[in-house]
Design a protein around this nucleic acid. Sequence first.
DNA 1: CGTGCGGTTGATGATCATCAATTTTGGTGG
DNA 2: CCACCAAAATTGATGATCATCAACCGCACG
Lengths: 199, 199
Amino acid sequence: MIWSGDKMDFVASVVSGIATLTQTLEDGRTQMVGLLLPSDFVGRPGRDRAAYNITATTDILMCCFRRKPFEELMDRTPHIAQRLLQMTLDELDAAREWMLLLGRKTAREKIASLLSIVARRDASIRHRGNGNSLTFDLPLTREAMADYLGLTLETVSRQISALKRDGVIELTGKRHVIVPDMERLLMEAGDDSDGGLLT
Amino acid sequence: MIWSGDKMDFVASVVSGIATLTQTLEDGRTQMVGLLLPSDFVGRPGRDRAAYNITATTDILMCCFRRKPFEELMDRTPHIAQRLLQMTLDELDAAREWMLLLGRKTAREKIASLLSIVARRDASIRHRGNGNSLTFDLPLTREAMADYLGLTLETVSRQISALKRDGVIELTGKRHVIVPDMERLLMEAGDDSDGGLLT
DNA sequence: CGTGCGGTTGATGATCATCAATTTTGGTGG
DNA sequence: CCACCAAAATTGATGATCATCAACCGCACG
C-alpha cells in the first residue's frame, strides 16, 4: 500500500482487515514493527512522509482524513490529542514488550508468544472457552511470522511442528490452531505472569 | 530506583544523568527497552504502576511532579498533551528502529549501530569535527550494552575488539572511543542511509 | 496439466552463547 | 603512595541454536 519515504498527506484509522508495518535493511532483511488491526491509527500528525512500509495482508478498509484538516481539528479539540496519546503509549508498551521478545527469547518462546497474543486477541471476540481450549486462525503467512519474530520462515515452520509434536497446539489445515491448554502455551511463552502465585 | 510493578504516583523529567528502562524474564534474562537521557520523560499519565525497572547508571537528577496534579494540568493546558504526544511518537519510532536492530542485525552491526547513536547524540553537543574524526565516552558498561543489544557481554567485548582491530574505532581507556571515520562506522552499522547516492 | 505459492523437512555450517580462566581498572584504606 | 580488592573487561575453548541451501509436497488457478 505504502512504501517508506512515500509522501503521505493523510492519517487513517483501520476499519476492517489487517496490515503490517515493516522496516527493511537495504540488503532485504525485513523486520515487522507493528501490526495494524481494526481501530488502530495510521500515520503521524506533523510528518508528511511515511516512516515504514505498510502492507495489507488481507483486504482492508481504512477511514482516511487529510492530514492538514486533521491537525487543525486536533488543535481545536484537546481530547483528540489525549486519546491519541493514550493509544501511542499503548503502542509503545507493545513495542517494548516486543523488544524483550526479539532480544531475549528463544525461537520456541517467540512462536509461543505470538500464538498467545493472537489467541488472546481472538479470545476477547469469540470466546469458545469450553474447558481451557481455544481456537483461532493465524492471520499471517509463515514468512510474515518470521519477519515479526526475527526468525527465518524455516525456523518458524520447525518450531510450529515441534509445538504440535509436543501437544502444545493442534493444527487443522495450515492456519487453524487449537490450543488445548492455554496455561501450557503461556508457560512456553516464557513471560510467565503466573509464576507469581501471590499476586 | 524503581522496580516494575512498584507504585509510582509521580511523573518526571530527567534533568541530568542517565538511567535505563529494562524488562526481565523471571529467569533473569534482561532486555533494555529505553535509555533515559536529559529532557526525557518518565512515567505515564493514567497509570499508577511502573511497567519497567528504572535503573540509574550515573548520578541522576530528575524533576518530579505528583501524578494527579499533573493530569489535571494536562486537562487544562492542551499543549502539554500535544507535546507529550510528539515525544511519545519519537520514542515509538526509536523503539521500532531498535526492533529492526534486535531482530535482524548481526552482532557487529549491533555494536556499530550503538556506537553510531551515542556518537550522534554527543556530536550535537561537543562537535570536535576536525576532519571526520569524532570522540565520545560510552555511558554504559559492557553488560548494559549487552542488555541493550540482546547479546551477551562477552560477545559485546569481542565485537568491540574486532572493530578496534579493523581500525573502525580506537579506544583510550575502556570507555573513551575515537571514531576516525564516521562514514565507515555507519557502513558497518548496516542502515546505510548513505547508499542512496541520489537522495 | 503445468505453474507458482505456501509450507515442510533435511543436511550442513556460521554465529553467538556458555563456561572458564585471566588481566585490567578504579577505588579504598593502611 | 602503594597494596590490595572487587568489579569490569578480555580472551579462549566448546557447544547449542538458528540460518542457509536444497529438495519436496499439496493446493489453487489459469
